[in-house]
Amino acid sequence: MGILSSSIARKVAMALSGLFLVFFLGQHFVINLTSVIASDTFNSWSHFMGTNGLVQGILQPVLIFGVIFHFVMGLVLEIRNRNARAINYKSYNGSANSSWASRNMIISGLVILAFLGLHFYDFWVPEIMYKYIESNPEDATRYFPEVVHKFESPVRTGLYVIAFVLLMLHLWHGFASSFQSVGFNNKYSKALTGFAKVYAIVIPLGFIFIAVYHHFNQLHH
């Protein structure tokens, strides 16, 4: 893999792609939050994201590449790491020295990947169909009802909640760990790690709140 053949280059690549996805997640959260606060704002921001040439033509492909890269590199590292211990211990007390989240990034990662499949099926595929395949005229007010409609299903809402809990665990280790991987470990590390841990809890909890809010809000009416 050329430049990515060394172990350190791979972990730096993993960290940088992860940080990029963390940044995207924050941006996604802010837009989603508007669906709870002001549906008009949600519609207009979604309309912008869905029709802006820069977002659609450049940022979206970059994001998809980032997700695929992070996943493929994670899998390559997992395979190499498993091979590095050909015979497993009969007794391995991992919890004595490390957190569950840090040891099981592959599990949380695969759940998030499965969730992304559902999420693409729910939103991205219909969006691409609507705009580019069926070539429907743009309706800037369609986004909010689409989101609310999706969260009618308790099963889908439940699956989203489970995925966000796993995302929380993934970020709990991954976000703070990425700074270490790129070589950042100094007097500011503690504060940065603190921020990363808060982010890892607050953002997924926020996403859970939005999903649950839309589910119960329509039951209410």
């Binding site: 060394s6 791979r10 972990k11 790491n81 091979n83 590095a84 991992g94 490390s98 040891r103 760990s177």
Partner: peptide
């Protein structure tokens, strides 16, 4: 890398 050690995933163990 040549010796076949795994990659660090910062578990801290």
């Amino acid at each position: 890398d040549k010796e076949g050690f795994g990659n660090c995933t910062n578990t801290g163990a």
